[in-house]
């Protein structure tokens, strides 16, 4: 008994330690989302929430059902691999109801350099230009047709 009385204070510290641990577990219980770890190291419910979000992109094949001509032009040119909405932005609403939802106008001075600005980090064979020098201050559209950008005919300049 005497032994216990003299080491009882160690239990006090152990109790403090246990309290901190208990507090941690209680807080953890409340702040960690219920579905955490359901499938992996993330919140399982996130999948459902993401799936429930509205769709913003219609997809190129949807555009092509109405804009047949442009789709064909593009398909024949150098931008064949670049999908409509990569430039025009998400247009699911427009595709669903073209009469009331007008796509915003694009500014080629900003749009084209997003992909074509020269950078040493891009693959060598990707077409890239130092925009300011190359365009001489004109917007890209003056010389390049966005849907078929390669310049073939002499009249293009």
């Amino acid at each position: 008994m005497k032994n216990f009385r003299d080491s009882e204070h160690l239990l006090r510290f152990a109790f403090l330690f246990a309290m901190v641990l208990a507090l941690f577990l209680i807080v953890r219980h409340f702040v960690v989302p219920k579905s955490f770890g359901e499938y992996g190291h993330y919140r399982g419910a996130a999948i459902g929430e993401t799936a429930a979000r509205p769709i913003h992109f219609a997809g190129q094949s949807a555009c092509a059902t109405c804009h047949t001509d442009i789709a064909a032009t593009k398909q024949a040119g150098m931008h064949a691999g670049v999908h409509c909405e990569a430039c025009h932005g998400p247009l699911a609403k427009h595709a669903a109801d073209p009469a009331s939802v007008q796509p915003p106008k694009l500014d080629t001075a900003v749009l084209c350099v997003r992909c074509h600005a020269a950078s040493a980090a891009k693959p060598k064979n990707f077409p890239q230009v130092a925009a300011a020098e190359h365009s001489g201050g004109l917007v890209c559209e003056t010389c390049h047709h966005p849907h078929s950008p390669a310049i073939q005919s002499e009249g293009a300049k």
Partner: peptide, 18 residues
């Protein structure tokens, strides 16, 4: 002190050991 109030020789020896 976490409420501990024991300063007996033996309790101090326990501290030392721990």
């Amino acid at each position: 002190s976490l409420g501990s109030n024991n300063t007996s020789e033996h309790s101090l020896a326990v501290d030392e050991r721990a």
